[in-house]
Amino acid sequence: MTQKISVTLTVNGTEYKKEVESRMLLSDFLRHELGLTGTHVGCEHGVCGACTILFDGESARSCLTFAVQADGHEITTVEGLAKNKDNLHPLQQSFWEAHGLQCGYCTPGILMSMIPFLKQNPNPTEDEIRHALSGNLCRCTGYQHIVDAVKLASEKMKVSK
């Protein structure tokens, strides 16, 4: 039963066409078929949030979606945030400046959760930030610096508008 299905999708603005097995998870497709290893795989059951991507602009777990379901859709991964390494997205720059990461495993998922959050909540309170971060697990930082980084990002993104 190795039925292969043709998938055409846009990832970070580039269109890709591939033949995949129906059971291939979107997270594995991004990492192994496209080589976009910025999307991390943690628990593979939707709890840890490391694999969070944008599916048509909204945050979603790529480990809970099959690649075939993304046919015709637009995906954004963490690689789509910065133009290049000298021009980080203000959210990434804030994580750098506020020490919002240690090992960095959870960071791509957190960034992809915070992009739509900050768009929908440009002036978040600390409580709102903590609530929004509850869908992403970090085992290093104790979250304080992540909260600081998101707060800093909200300020930077206001200025840059």
Binding site: S22, H45, R61, C63, T65, F66, Q69
Partner: peptide
Amino acid sequence: FLAGGQSLVPAMNFRIVQPSVLIDLN
């Protein structure tokens, strides 16, 4: 049926559920 997949896909990832046919409603 595959609806949002937020309970079914974890169960499939763990092979608690192994449907031979999936009908995607999306």
